[in-house]
Design a protein around this nucleic acid. Structure first.
Lengths: 140, 140
DNA sequence: TCTTGCACCTCTAGTCACTAGAGGATGTAG
DNA sequence: CTACATCCTCTAGTGACTAGAGGTGCAAGA
């Protein structure tokens, strides 16, 4: 069997070397076998797990959510209701974020547009930020 | 002159009490006067500054960017080019974020849709996360 | 065989922007 | 006067890494 070093695992999975060690330390990735010289030696299953983790992180899932997804994956003989719920919650979050980013985009465009490249006291960037009433944000 | 307590300042500005103290500690908010009993006493200008900070934070500006914006605001007799540059940089970031969130949203919808509420081994949530090729993300 | 040099090891501490909690002082309403 | 909310300072914790120190392993070229 070929031995996969942590560096190769990093290149294959797209997860940085220290991050791989971090994932191991928090129990997201199992402790791999070690070489004679105490170096980590991974197997293809670890690469798949790392890729799964990276992908889920890119999608904005928190580590705890990923932990749940991984235990589901480890035991595929059960209902996927939890996985479904996690994904649905993320979807709602993402939709909310898109909405507020769109509002923000409009506001930033106003700012940049309004900046006459003069002095600050005529600058919309400052003005819009200072005056809360100028934008659509709720006073939470 | 009426004295504004930190609690009132919090309610008025929407910034939590410990966060106000934190902003003072990092020099984002000036140290206010104190009452006889050593309690902070704010003025209307502080409320405006806090609102400014909160608003900018909501818009995703980092504290360091806000520090720059605040020094600009404190001395309005100068060019607003820096403020303009900061806002422009944020705008580009925000547009990028919206794009990737839209992609993410599509992917999450696929997941949730595909989940037949059966067992995990037929669940798209797990599947899509596990198989990198299923989605549009570049292998960075 | 030796050595160069990169990749690996562990460990601690730092990042950002807060948040939580301990333990005590102050201020206000009844 | 007594509750009781609010305030004070201080330290430590959060999430998800990232950086650096100080040392070891290993493969390839001279």
């Amino acid at each position: 069997m070929k031995k996969i070093t942590i560096g190769e695992a990093s290149r294959e999975s797209g997860v940085k070397v220290p991050t791989i060690r971090y994932y191991e330390s928090i129990g997201l990735l199992p402790e791999p076998n070690r070489s004679e010289g105490n170096q980590r030696s991974y197997e293809p299953a670890d690469l798949r797990r790392l890729t799964f983790i990276r992908h889920a992180r890119e999608l904005g899932f928190e580590v705890e959510a990923i932990r749940t997804l991984l235990t589901l994956q480890d035991d595929p003989n059960q209902s996927c209701a939890s996985a479904d719920a996690i994904a649905k919650a993320r979807l709602i979050e993402v939709e909310q974020r898109i909405r507020s980013l769109m509002a923000l985009k409009a506001e930033l465009e106003l700012m940049v547009e309004g900046c006459g490249h003069g002095r600050v006291d005529q600058c919309r960037v400052i003005e819009v930020l200072a005056d809360h009433g100028q934008c659509g944000h709720a006073h939470h």
